[in-house]
Design a protein around this nucleic acid. Sequence first.
DNA 1: GTCCAGGATACTG
DNA 2: CAGTATCATGGA
Length: 301
Amino acid sequence: MQWRDQGTLIEIVPPKEFSFRECLVFLGRSNQEVLHRIQNQQLFKLVKIMNELILLKIGWKNHRMTIEFPMGEPTWLIKEEVVHYICNWFDLERDLSGFYEMASKDTVLQSLITKYDGLRIIGIPDLFEALTWAIMGQQINLSFAYTLKKRFVEHFGEKIDIEGDTFWLYPTFEAIALLEVDALRKLQFTTRKAEYVIGTARAIATGKLSKQLLIELDAELQQEVLVNIKGIGPWTAHYVMMKCLLTQSAFPMTDVGLHLALKAQLGLDVKPDLDEIKKMASNWSGWEAYATFYLWRSLYE
DNA sequence: GTCCAGGATACTG
DNA sequence: CAGTATCATGGA
């Protein structure tokens, strides 16, 4: 990844297919989001690196991604980690030419790659966040899922106040591993969701599960390990593979959002069934995660 | 009031 | 095994 340290500013040279504006559309899809903020085409995000809170102000200028540090210039080591984080978050190191080539010949994806040209998967680099956010989203509408997440973050996350704005960090697995079900029931988690979230935190806390461990496995084994955890089914496993492990072939094919997007794109009266979806997806082989992400994007016009 | 949301699990025949 | 009840709440 090519980047330049300009002191109080970092510039990242973006990959060929990249649109910061498109990525912002996806990031701005919910006004209930508490983990980042968008103002005047600038993205604000609080991260913790080497035990230090760092506020990032991410923008776009002269064909470069720019990172500024409103809380002051960090050390070079931290800057390096910041660049690594941004690459992970925006999936900057992936060569998308294969996806665009396949999609240009695909009846479903064809129009999407033109409309959303340069969109990349916006990931969730933290495994605990990816897993538990997915669990919160099971079976309920996204709006309520965001309500749950907001309560979860504001009860158990760390925050910092800067010039009247509050920025939050997602709760750590260490903190959540110590909770009992009651603590989350109070936030209107179902008993099961509370158990799943705490169980996941404990699985990570005991070292049974880690991003490092998963990232070294192929897609099939990743799914196997994830599904082994209580509360993680195929949908959640593939969601996490897609958003955290950046597995190209991850494919949450039972996802309701995917079904609704396909229904709209194809002008169907009812949602497509799994056989129809598998048939369409056979053409996406190796790029299922990007196909899914572009379809999700089509839901946020 | 009814139905469905970015599902997973335990139970039943 | 495949089908079914259950979870719990909000929004259309």
